[in-house]
Simulated assay, not measured.
Amino acid sequence: MKLNDEVRETLLDEVTGLGDEELNKRPSSGGWSIAQVMEHLYLMERAVVYNIQHALENGSIKEVSSKPIELTVNRSRKVEAPEFVQPNESSMTLKDLQRKLQTSHEALRGIYTTVDQERLVEKTAVHPVFGEMNLFQWIPFVGYHEQRHIDQIKEIKETL
Rank of each mutant, 00 (worst) to 15 (best):
P82K: 06
E122A: 04
G143K: 02
N88C: 04
E39M: 09
I111V: 14
E89S: 13
L97V: 14
S91Y: 11
M133D: 07
A55C: 02
Q98Y: 09
L3I: 13
K95H: 07
A81N: 10
I52M: 01
W138M: 06
P68M: 05
V49I: 12
P27C: 08
Q86L: 13
Y144H: 07
V142K: 00
I156C: 11
L12I: 14
F84N: 03
K157N: 06
R109D: 06
G19N: 13
E89A: 13
P68C: 04
N4L: 15
A107W: 01
E122N: 08
R109Q: 10
A125E: 04
M1H: 10
P140A: 01
D20A: 00
V48N: 03
L160P: 08
G143Y: 03
L41W: 01
E83F: 12
L11M: 15
W138T: 07
R46Q: 09
V79C: 03
A35Q: 00
E39S: 13
H149N: 06
R109I: 14
I52R: 00
P27M: 03
K123D: 04
S60A: 14
L11G: 12
D13L: 11
L135W: 02
Q147M: 11
L41H: 02
T103V: 15
Q86W: 04
E83A: 15
S28L: 10
A125F: 13
I150L: 12
I69A: 09
I156A: 12
V79I: 15
D20R: 00
K2W: 03
D151E: 09
P27R: 01
Y144E: 02
V64P: 01
D116R: 07
Y42I: 01
H145K: 03
S65V: 00
S66G: 06
V37L: 05
L120I: 08
T113Q: 12
E14I: 02
T72C: 05
V142S: 10
Q137N: 08
L23W: 06
T159Y: 05
S65K: 05
E21Y: 02
M1A: 15
L11W: 05
T93W: 06
F130E: 00
G110S: 14
F84L: 08
E63S: 12
Q117P: 10
D96F: 08
K95W: 00
K154E: 03
L97T: 11
P140Y: 03
Q53A: 02
V49K: 05
L12H: 09
H40L: 04
N74G: 04
Q117C: 12
P128D: 09
I61Q: 07
D116A: 15
T10Q: 11
K95N: 06
V142A: 14
G30Y: 03
T16Y: 06
Q147R: 08
I150M: 09
V115M: 10
R148L: 10
K62V: 13
L94D: 02
E6N: 12
Q147F: 08
L120K: 06
T72G: 10
T159R: 12
L11P: 10
L71Q: 09
A35F: 00
V121K: 11
R99C: 09
D151S: 11
